[in-house]
Nucleic acid binder design. Sequence first.
DNA 1: CAAACTCCTGAACAGGTGCTCAAATGATAA
DNA 2: TTATCATTTGAGCACCTGTTCAGGAGTTTG
Lengths: 122, 122
Amino acid sequence: MDVLAGLDACTTMEPDEGRVAAARDRLVTPEEATQLAELFRLLGDPTRAQLLYALLEAGELCVCDLTETVEVSDTAVSHALRLLRTAGIVASRRAGRMIYYRLADVHVRMLLDLSREHLRHG
Amino acid sequence: MDVLAGLDACTTMEPDEGRVAAARDRLVTPEEATQLAELFRLLGDPTRAQLLYALLEAGELCVCDLTETVEVSDTAVSHALRLLRTAGIVASRRAGRMIYYRLADVHVRMLLDLSREHLRHG
DNA sequence: CAAACTCCTGAACAGGTGCTCAAATGATAA
DNA sequence: TTATCATTTGAGCACCTGTTCAGGAGTTTG
């Protein structure tokens, strides 16, 4: 594989506005990388990951249901959910004295789904 | 949205081997969730994330090039790369006294790519 | 009202993480 | 060989993280 394959392309092709724009879109600044790391960091804990995959399967679960899916106290689950909620990874809804959590958006679902595929067929 | 939408389906439809098998494939055990968390944890550090996105853009880079993309010492970069290499996230190749690193497989590239999209259009 | 239930908050602490420094390894050049 | 370059390794340490415990807040039930 050519070490500089991507960078050498300009010696064999004329500049192209479309490709240039696409390359600029691909660039990730240190600030963006840090934001992405923050997202991954939140997914990168066994307790939180189990909660998220439980929500991926069930759609929506209350804290007491989620507590049964992991081996920690309900307090630890609550702390974990607060981190995920603050980061916009999950959303919550009150119904009586129970609070139901769900994955916040389709991107999070795709991320969890793709990662599961990576684990099994990577 | 119905809280138990997924679970109630069996009251309105006959069992279906295809759907049952698909549901079983979707289930993530605590052990799998923990493995996935380990993957996310490794992506969840600003230094490592910057290195990975640099590799995503450039294809292949030596340690000295990678050191220029982050604000830490070459030693810290080496420690970070060892973690990623041990986990099978990056692969390395020696050429003279330089060692070139690249992303290990297409799944990692897709994961980084999808996450970048999440950050920008989520 | 009080009791019961679900969930959240703050404090404290053991354990883990990522950094730098100093030293070592492997490879090329003089 | 000796010197130099690129990278790795191990030690030490400041900082961060996730947990439990104790207590509080909001909601329904008797």
